[in-house]
Write a protein that binds this DNA or RNA. Structure first.
Lengths: 364, 364
DNA sequence: AGTTTGGGTGAATCCGAAG
DNA sequence: CCTTCGGATTCACCCAAAC
């Protein structure tokens, strides 16, 4: 069993724990988990049967674990698991919860009431939803996920560049088009019936985990079901902890995850932003003689400033760092001096950022 | 002034009432309104300023009416207007409320707590949202509407065939793609500044009213603003009642609605949704398991690259998008990665573009 | 007269390491 | 805890002006 450094208590990594998730989480060490993905019962409140136009019966979610007598009972249930989840979450950890209009408003309000800080609500737009057979409402074609940090101001993980890369190099939006889980991905029991009524597509978890975790992170799923979270976590080189009350689900999940192979760690490495690059002080360029004291730098609009020996700039009416002088030149609140200034070599203008690239290349 | 049959009290139809919506609704006869459309303050809780990468400042919603000290204060506000709204609603009436993740969960929970019965939550997917300028979260590209009847079992209005016809004769889904309100539709004040910070597009109200009201119905908007609800209601031959606390907004709304003419035909404009083939990010193939992280792609001349978990490629000497790596392989300025790369299945090479065709077929 | 280019802007909970 | 400051960060669409 893998152990983490937090506390003396071992974390049961890459296992499925059978039982009530509140009790189990309360026995876990606090602040030990990087991400929680929760797919709690939706409290669907279905009355009676539903039949398709061809009279076939819709296989509805009528399991005992989805029945609550009142909204108050559902709220108590929500409060309890969410509080236990918050305890085991690291200070900079985050949570995802998925739901439908039956429960998601109560879930979202509970998150806010408990001090979680909502980062985005995300719409899972189903490309192939079940139609509304009676024509009495709009086709319920989406579910909602809430992404929240443990508290306001926490330094949550967000692989901005990676999800931007996944989306053809434009920012990932809050609406995700993903098919529902069908076909060979949908797990069946011995009789051929679906093993779990609300199995989530792996594509959904893939995006969640790539966006908001790093390889080696610990992902906890307190309503593990057939283990989609665990399967995707394993493939992506994350550790998981699964909890479920139903032994039948856990059994299916265990087999499923055993068949998953972890991807090569080289391909799990994800596109990093410039923030991950080491900081290079401008003064180094002068120290190294890449720029001379007294050398003139040019702005895009041909304003000039002179390089001083300490790596600051001096212009006609101001002096300071490359950023400060650039901002002053433009009357702007801030300025990236690296991309703003150029110097002249053999008659052509060269951005000073080229020099920073050289230094960074040497550092590798 | 038009009168309704309910009670002896006249309904102030097609007027804008200035003042607090709770007081005004409480003076109205009960059970007298067919539909309520509410666009309450969102309680955005914005902190400091935000600048775009070009250093221009974002014109944020910082109006006094959007400031609440605590969630509890916002909940009281919500409870009060929602209760007054429920009283004036006919037994078979319905309500729409729009919001963002800042407030919609509290709104939805309040609706349920007061006995409203949620029929659908609807996602307004903005085709042109404001980006996330700092790259710290997902682009907030949608808002949420909740559609609820006055109580469970009520016989609400839903024009199933009409909205189906609006949607190319397939069932209308719960996610609606509509542009934000800009251009000539966006109302400006004398100085050219926007007359209201959160004006909603008429296309949104058009769909709401066509779907859930009949001609001659009474539509109440307790947060009338610049009167989008009134303008669309008038055009569609519905009566409206608008309430707002701000005289400046009411003045703009009055002029606006005076210029609207009631449509004589039932010609329903269709929301513009041209767009050629939808763009499919390569990362989706990985998410969906059509390609595995680590899988090898082949160029026409049998060079290879590996797929990474975020949908980028890694080759011996470079990494990036399918297009970037393809271009680097060929020493070309650009490259269409979709037609350049193939993968191997059962011994034969298949262009990855085949997979894109599959996804596009699903999206229809 | 068309076409291209450049500027403006939209309900936004939008930085973080170093000292 | 604070303050300071380096420097990273944007998409779709409309409109006006230039060509």
């Amino acid at each position: 069993m893998k152990r983490t450094k937090t506390e003396g208590t071992p974390l049961p990594l890459n296992q499925i724990l059978l039982g009530d998730c509140v009790e189990i989480m309360n026995r876990m060490p606090e602040a030990s988990v990087d991400l929680i993905f929760a797919d709690p019962p939706y409290n669907l409140q279905l009355r009676g049967d539903l039949h398709r136009p061809d009279n076939s019966k819709v296989d509805a979610v009528d399991d005992h674990w989805d029945r609550f007598d009142t909204f108050a009972a559902y709220d108590r249930f929500t409060h309890d698991w969410m509080k236990a989840a918050r305890r085991v979450l690291k200070p900079n950890g985050a949570i995802w919860v998925i739901g439908s209009y039956h429960n998601i408003f109560r879930v979202g309000a509970a998150l806010q009431d408990q001090g979680y800080w909502i980062l985005n609500d995300v719409v899972w737009r189903k490309s192939n939803p079940m139609p509304n057979f009676r024509g009495k409402r709009l086709t319920n074609a989406h579910e909602t996920l809430i992404w929240a940090s443990k508290s306001e101001g926490a330094k949550y993980t967000f692989n901005y560049e990676a999800v931007k890369a996944m989306n053809d190099d434009v920012q990932m939006r809050s609406d995700w088009v993903i098919p529902i889980c069908t076909g060979h991905e949908r797990l069946k029991d011995a009789t051929g019936a679906k093993a779990h009524p609300t199995q989530k597509p792996e594509a959904l978890l893939h995006r969640v985990l790539v966006a908001t975790t790093n390889p080696g992170d610990v992902v906890l799923d307190p309503f593990f079901g057939t283990g989609t979270t665990g399967a995707v976590a394993k493939r992506l080189g994350r550790d998981f902890i699964g909890i479920d009350r139903e032994a039948a689900y856990a059994e299916v999940a265990e087999k499923r995850i055993a068949n998953v192979r972890k991807a090569n760690s080289e391909v799990l490495e994800v596109t990093k932003g410039k923030r991950a690059e080491p900081r290079v002080p401008f003064g180094q360029l002068v120290e190294r003689g890449m720029l001379q004291p007294g050398e003139v730098l040019f702005s895009p609009r041909n304003k000039t400033a002179k390089v001083r020996a300490d790596g600051t700039l001096i212009a006609s009416d101001c002096k300071g760092s490359i950023h400060q002088v650039g901002a002053a030149m433009e009357g702007a609140p801030s300025c990236n001096g690296w991309t703003y200034w150029s110097y002249r070599r053999d008659g052509i203008m060269v951005p000073i950022d080229v020099l920073r690239q050289q230094i960074r290349a040497e550092m590798k």
